[in-house]
Amino acid sequence: MGGHLNINHLMFLGQGALWTIGLSVIALIGGGIVGFVIALARISPLKSVRIGSAVYVQLVQGTPLLVILFLGYFGLAAIGLKVSPLAAAGASLTLYVAAYLGEIWRGCIESVPKPQWEAADGLALSRTQRMMKVILPQAIRIATPPTVGFMVQIIKNTSLASVVGFVELMRSGQIVNNSLFEPFAIYAIIAVVYFAMCYPLSLFSQKLERRMGRGRSNLAPA
């Protein structure tokens, strides 16, 4: 105890902030890949695939991320699979993000107007061609604002990785607090750093949404 916040503490917090960004990127890429598969599985022509992916989404969306993290770290260790905090946090966040992104993207794919699907069928495109050449290019445009918005959730949720001992921004704050014991000041700093990471993304997402709204209103109704 004692001492004041000095440059070393700030360096340590900075390092934690970098790990927060790193973990967010891991979760976004991993969750994006799995989430894309989930989105496609949710609209699959096979009923069993549709039901299986829907059950996955319901289960993950009905469970707190904290419990998934504990399951991935302590749970797997208890049945003999030792995983590092980074691996446990990365894998848990990937599973969690995939369920949400998959559901967001399914909505975006399904919101591509019906005539586009029919026109692609009418041009005798195969299912893959229809998806890759007609539907996805339009769905990506619709999906960008909510995906950027969800990145804010990802960054905030990485703070939970602190509870399994992964030293990201939140955990580094706790460690600094253990030596200085000025909780209010330190957590306020942490909050400001999170805000500085998230707020630009929020603004960007809002801007994209507004731009899309304008673009759409210019289109004449079909």
Partner: peptide, 16 residues
């Protein structure tokens, strides 16, 4: 401010 910071940080801030 609330929507752009994690709940965990908010809880600690309120608590301490």
């Amino acid at each position: 401010a609330i929507r752009n910071t994690p709940l965990l940080v908010q809880i600690f801030l309120v608590y301490f």
